[in-house]
Write a protein that binds this DNA or RNA. Structure first.
Lengths: 216, 216
DNA sequence: TGTCAGAATTTTTGATCAAAAAATTTGGTT
DNA sequence: AACCAAATTTTTTGATCAAAAATTCTGACA
């Protein structure tokens, strides 16, 4: 019989943990990761860590080097262009799908998250900014209930995360603009095209921001 | 010093092997896979098989059930729509990028592959059809040298593969049309818009074909 | 016959170990 | 000092085992 008692397997938990490390820029691009290093950083055995690494590698969050190490891959102009192409076609669609399923309480929730974004920008807290920004977007995306689009989007965010962090660190949070107001008001008005446009703008702005640092 | 002697690790080989099983429909949708079953089907240890499974799960080729098993996921209308959205925006772009880098010998190669497609259709050999069709597309996609787009595309093909196989089995290969001629002649003429259109048509046709079986 | 609890079996999971591979250090030679 | 090869250390990889979890089997009871 299905007990439903046990929690998730450990490799899932480790996956989530490392995923957040990468997503919010705690691991620098180019930095190689040893399986042991991760294991005792997290305080876990080596077996589940390996499985988590395979999964993250498949998602593009890590890359296996020609030898047998893995590292957080560095961003390139080419990769950024490809990511932009997909993000611009997928995320506005996701946002629209999610928007259609939002009720009043969801609007409130989104505004609360947007408040956290502003607050983080004001405080110059990069980590919190990345986290709040992520939650804002994915709260809506999750509402869409579109497994496949969401998975792809998550993978792309994982690939951009580390560079975004580097850039924020370099230029500071003062350059960041909160683009979510436009999205929220479009949401409230039920203006779906407005929602799509707002998300497209937001993505474009984020991509440009990352591209800045690659031009040198 | 870097020896460069050893071949790839086994989990990579196993990954490729299982990937092909799924891609070419050797594993039916809904069918659960045991880690042991795979291990001694392939004749390998359980450790590398587990790693391969994690990777395939991350790519959507397998799905972890609520208990701790994995299975080839079943297709749904919703998933198919999402896949279609992404494929239509990514693959024509990939095809165009690849087309720009093709020379005469590549055209020949593509024609040869297309010949294999026709031959497989004629012989009613589903497995060979799926394989030749895959090679035709991905030969061009690989030329594009666009890591990220290719990874996404591969993941989507992995998710469609099993259903495609089921459908071919049900309706036979007689329903299949070779849509590649249009693409090849556009390629030869350097007509990039034509290439994109041809690929979009091909994808659309394939998606419709899979959708047929879901309507019941 | 149908159902349900408990036992037996199968399977997954994570730790550990040995072997293979890669990186690093060491020491000698020029 | 600069370079190279051998030795040492670190790391990955895959096998194996024990524990946990899930499934299947079994038999008692209504």
């Amino acid at each position: 019989m299905n007990q439903l008692v046990g929690k998730k397997p450990e490799h899932e938990a480790i996956y989530s943990e490392v995923k957040e490390l990468i997503l919010f820029g705690e691991v620098a691009p180019g930095q190689p990761l040893t399986i042991h290093g991760l294991a005792n950083l997290i305080g876990a055995g080596v077996t589940p860590v390996r499985e988590a690494i395979r999964r993250l590698t498949a998602e593009g969050a890590l890359a296996s080097l020609e030898n047998r190490r893995v590292a957080v891959p560095k961003m390139t102009v080419e990769k950024l262009q490809q990511i932009q192409l997909v993000r611009l076609s997928v995320e506005p669609a996701l946002a629209e799908m999610g928007a259609k399923k939002c009720d009043k309480s969801d609007f409130l929730e989104l505004e609360k998250l947007d408040g956290l974004v502003d607050q983080a920008i004001e405080n110059g807290d990069i980590r919190r900014y990345l986290e709040a920004n992520y939650r804002f977007h994915f709260m809506l995306y999750e509402k869409a209930d579109a497994q496949i689009l969401q998975r792809i989007t998550e993978s792309l965010w994982l690939q951009v995360g580390p560079s975004l962090r580097v850039n924020c660190g370099r230029f500071g949070t003062s350059n960041l603009v909160d683009q979510h107001q436009e999205a929220i008001s479009a949401l409230r008005n039920g203006d779906m095209d407005g929602v799509k446009r707002a998300f497209a703008d937001d993505i474009q702005q984020g991509m440009d921001f990352v591209q800045q640092a690659l031009g040198e």
